[in-house]
Amino acid sequence: MNKTVHKSNHLNKHNRWGYYFLIPFVVIFVVFQLVPLISTIYNSFFENYMSGLKQVGPRFVGFANFKALISSGDLFVYFKNTMIMWALGFVPQILVSLLLGAWFTDPALRLKGQRFFKTVIYLPNLIMASAFSMLFFTLFSDSGPVNSILLQIGVLSKAFKFMSNVWSVRGLVAMMNFLMWFGNTTILLMAGMMGIDQSLFEAAEVDGASARQIFFRITLPLLRPILIYVMITSLIGGLQMFDVPQVLTNGKGDPMRSSMTLIMYLNKHLFSKNYGMAGALSVILLIITGILSIIVFRVSAADEVRGGRHRDRDKLVKEEES
């Protein structure tokens, strides 16, 4: 690829432009991301909050913020909430996406209207999460259209309070996440499926393999890198879950904070200028994000040959982005 560039060593002067062209990225990255990240970590070691109108701190307290955060127990509750709502959405998302991907790419099925279906299932992904969540809130409110319809057709005898039940709130959040992401996942998995060598399918068919056998014995194993990628990114996205539950429950995470996510908790600390705690929580989130990506990656790549991991990662980064 860069052969011509090498050959033109007599024009080496122009390579300085590689640095010049990097300046905007580097400057903006340092100012708006790196410095804030370091300052966040720095802040996590200081006592710094507002008590009424009085500013307390900043005073260096070592790991006291972390201790307070962990010993209060809230952190684990919110982590659990976040993971439950993520999993409730992710499991159906990956199953439906695999199924749709297999159908769309199966030449024997020759499904019509593929462009229409793809356009429709991708649509919710572009909808403003806060608007979508507000919409669900009104639709599922006690006197909203969903209750009204269920009453009219006689499924319910009195309105179901969706917003006061732990599992219906979590279920709604999960359903919105599912709706917003399964189209995207389907399209990513389809790209992976279409990248599989067609002769493998033909050979299997000649050998008399059923559609199910082909899916489980050929498609699924060969899709692994892209499945790992989808899972890692979805998990990291899930940890950042905010807009949907925030708007649906008005930032309270009701009922009984059972739908309060980690980022909602962070948002609360940021608004009340509780900087020490917000810092500690951010650092913990950064660590969890890091560990989770490594765990998922290791577990899924455990049976890979040594050294294959890096190749796998490169390949997967390439596939996902494409």
Binding site: L270, S282, V317
Partner: peptide, 26 residues
């Protein structure tokens, strides 16, 4: 070149919310 490319790939996964505290203070 190689170093910067790898570095950008590494920071791709960091959620923006994680540095929000430092960001609003700055």
């Amino acid at each position: 070149k190689r170093l910067i490319f790898t570095f950008i790939l590494m920071i791709m996964m960091i959620p923006t919310q994680v540095s929000a505290l430092g960001f609003i203070r700055l």
